[in-house]
Every structure is written in structure tokens, then in C-alpha cells.
Deep mutational scan, measured.
Amino acid sequence: MISLIAALAVDRVIGMENAMPWNLPADLAWFKRNTLNKPVIMGRHTWESIGRPLPGRKNIILSSQPGTDDRVTWVKSVDEAIAACGDVPEIMVIGGGRVYEQFLPKAQKLYLTHIDAEVEGDTHFPDYEPDDWESVFSEFHDADAQNSHSYCFEILERR
């Protein structure tokens, strides 16, 4: 099963200049909980913004210009990325925008964090048809001392 995991502000903004323009430790914990011990696929820009392999996960970098870091697996196509994951129950696609666009048609599940923030962004989550998805989990949280904005975790499964 292919799943996408993303944090989205208003207007589906997911990033600005290779960074997330908010401070939500709870979302980072949600991300870790849902990706640990699963292969993660990301684009080169996302890889560069993280700066290191995510521990406890097979890191697969999709790029037309593969790098030389041998701590991760470099691939040039969506099919190659899927094959590099091996026989696993769930593959997690973690961004960025172009990689989400490439995998959305193949995805069966979306793990979304909806952030109540209007922020400037240069990267967006692809538009998706809500009628194609069923919400199977939703959990709202107010902003607090650690988390700069209110947010809602949601899991959607393709109908």
C-alpha cells in the first residue's frame, strides 16, 4: 500500500524555501509514529532540507540527478522507488510537492495534518478530489505552549 503523509496549511501550503513555516512538535511526533519502520520516499529537495537519513526507516530518494550519499537509496523513477521498498505492507511518501503529485494517483491512504495557519509558501500539496477519499480518523488539537497553531490529524482512505 502506498501512503502519503503531509502537513498542510491553508491553501495546501506545505513548504517555503525548503522548510515548513510553522513550529508543531506534535506533528513531528505524528510523522515519526506513522513512518517508523517503514520505507520513506522523498525528493532530493526534501532530502536536502532534512540533511540526514531518517533513523529507523529505509530512505529512498527520487531524483533525476541521483546523489552520492550511500546512506540512502537513490532512484530515478516512481517504479524504481516502489521496487526499492521491497515487499512491505506500507510505503510512506513524505514529499515534496512534485513527489506527492507523482504518487497521489497510486496512493491508497493519506495521513494529513491540517494546520490552521495562513502562511506564504512556494510548495503545495497537490489538489485531490475529496469525494474519492473517506475520512477514517480525525483528531483536532488547539494551539498550545509547544505548538504554534491549532491542527487536525486526519487519515483518508481511497474509496
Rank of each mutant, 00 (worst) to 15 (best):
I50L: 15
V13Y: 00
D132W: 10
H149L: 00
F31P: 02
M92Q: 12
G51P: 12
D11T: 07
D131L: 06
E134M: 10
L4G: 00
M16K: 03
P130T: 13
R33L: 05
R159V: 11
K109D: 01
G51V: 11
A145N: 11
D132Y: 14
M16D: 02
D11G: 11
N18M: 06
D70C: 10
A84K: 05
F125I: 10
H114Q: 15
V13S: 04
P53E: 08
S135W: 06
I14C: 13
V99S: 11
S64T: 05
E48C: 13
P39T: 15
G97N: 04
R98W: 15
R158V: 08
L112C: 10
H114V: 15
A81M: 12
I60E: 02
D70W: 07
M42T: 02
A29R: 03
K32R: 03
R44Q: 05
E17S: 04
C85G: 08
L54P: 01
C152D: 12
L62H: 09
I155Y: 06
I61P: 01
I155A: 05
A83V: 09
G86S: 11
S63Q: 05
T73D: 03
P126M: 14
F153Y: 04
F31T: 00
V136K: 10
G86P: 15
I155W: 12
A81S: 04
D142F: 12
C85L: 15
T68L: 09
G67I: 06
A143G: 06
N147H: 04
D69Q: 05
Q146L: 08
V72C: 11
F153Q: 03
D69R: 09
G51I: 13
H124G: 14
R12L: 14
A19Q: 07
D144L: 04
W30A: 09
W47M: 15
K38A: 07
V93I: 06
H45G: 09
D70M: 11
A145M: 07
R44N: 15
D87C: 04
S135G: 10
E134D: 02
D142K: 11
V72I: 12
N147W: 01
T113S: 06
H141N: 05
M20F: 02
F153T: 09
I60F: 14
V136T: 08
I115Y: 04
E101C: 08
G51M: 07
R44K: 13
